[in-house]
Nucleic acid binder design. Structure first.
Lengths: 235, 235
DNA sequence: GGGACATCAAAAAGTCATACTTAAAGAGTG
DNA sequence: CACTCTTTAAGTATGACTTTTTGATGTCCC
């Protein structure tokens, strides 16, 4: 398996070249690419180009019409929930905007997910969530950011899954990407704030106790903090 | 342009056959399809099959490995935010479950979107939203469900766009699909409830006045009503 | 003369068949 | 148990041909 986005085949490699090129604005909306030209430029067969283009089309990054070619669509058309598109955009130029959009989305979804987890989750869910919250506590001091991140991601993932809602659960990867990005790129030299850690523990408690309202409001504090943190970094 | 999902090319038609077949469980997870077999069954060339399969792969409905074939992935892998996947699932057997997931998602997102619309939206946004709310009022009596639906969709779409958040805005189509489905399939012989209509008007007012808290809580009432409505229909 | 409509040719994607390469699962062997 | 070897199905390349669409050319009628 290829751990990064780049698959094994030529089509996947072409996709990994074209996708970021489009989302980063190298080929701005309205640009028309011709399939033959792409085949020549990237030294692959038309077969390969067609497959990659079909995928871009399904992501609504491009539209392909006969006698015209492959036209890059405006951002408003893009399937911004597609994991690949999210990855490409997070890696590219409008990373800050993307990070903000996703954090706002988290702010809408995670508190509700926490409430549902408290109301509908079973003991196993509560245990998993608590386990990660405690893991965060254990790794919150002494420059163990990597391990802390694992538990942070695990915590949010577990809550989203425990909500029992499929759409929420699928946002786990998005949250993971945001948290990872924060640790990697943004300023986070020091240990995480103890206040943030304790909020996670309190969410876990509320969920275990089945207290939906408290789980929701506490989680809302967490997501609001995440948003303010962004505002401080990029006002 | 093809008004329905079925595109013009053979690959699109094959996709429109395979996608629903997978999401509806005709080919349950774990099923292995061979490309050659598909080409024969649907009487198309391997080129066409490959293009369709590549798209299914990018939706994470299938995984394709050499020497194995095209394997249908478990539901937990599917890109459930992909508009096409949503459409297919709404048209298929697990429509009720899908409708519920989406309605819960609406319940998380729309109230927050309404607050943001009130806090950040401009006069034009307010005007558009109000226009649709009034349109709902005007069409709420006398069996004008079709026109009512147009304004209902327009209202929610306008609020989501006015939120200024790209991710929220992209959920407009999802909401439209849910509302359309409700009108078409579920019991909705009679005129809409006046109470629901007036809630929309009040959200519009709150947004125009920049009252984020009121916009949020009123919208929350709307989405909670939508959820209870589902509970009544499918407990 | 000018606008509306029909016709036509070129361009680029769409489709197909074929030949060949490559990776990997599974059998067979030491 | 590890190693090799065969077989299988996907991956890639290419050439020939079809189809759609657009923009240009041209014609007719007002």
């Amino acid at each position: 398996m290829t751990s990064d986005g780049t698959g094994s085949g030529l089509h996947a490699r072409l996709l990994a070249a074209l996708g970021p090129a489009i989302t980063s604005g190298v080929h701005p909306p309205g640009t028309v690419l011709r399939a033959d030209e792409l085949a020549e430029r990237y030294e692959v067969s038309r077969t390969v180009v067609r497959e990659a283009v079909r995928v871009l089309e399904s992501m609504r990054l491009v539209e392909v019409r006969r006698r015209v070619g492959v036209t890059v669509l405006p951002v408003t058309e893009w399937n911004v929930y597609d994991p690949q598109v999210i990855t490409w955009r997070l890696a590219g130029a409008d990373r800050p905007r993307q990070l903000r959009s996703l954090t706002v989305l988290r702010g809408a979804v995670e508190p509700v997910a926490a409430r549902l987890a408290a109301e509908r989750g079973d003991a196993g869910d509560g245990a998993r969530i608590t386990e990660h919250a405690l893991g965060m506590v254990a790794t919150s001091r002494g420059q163990q950011l990597e391990n802390y991140l694992v538990h942070d991601i695990g915590f949010h993932h577990a809550v989203l899954r425990a909500s029992g809602n499929e759409m929420f659960a699928r946002l786990g990867d998005v949250v993971a990407a945001v948290l990872t990005g924060r640790t990697e790129h943004e300023v986070m030299f020091s240990d995480p704030r103890q206040e943030a850690v304790s909020l996670h523990v309190r969410v876990a408690e509320a969920i275990r106790e089945g207290d939906g309202a408290r789980a929701e409001s506490t989680m809302r504090t967490i997501t609001e903090d995440a948003l303010s943190e962004l505002d401080i970094l990029a006002p």
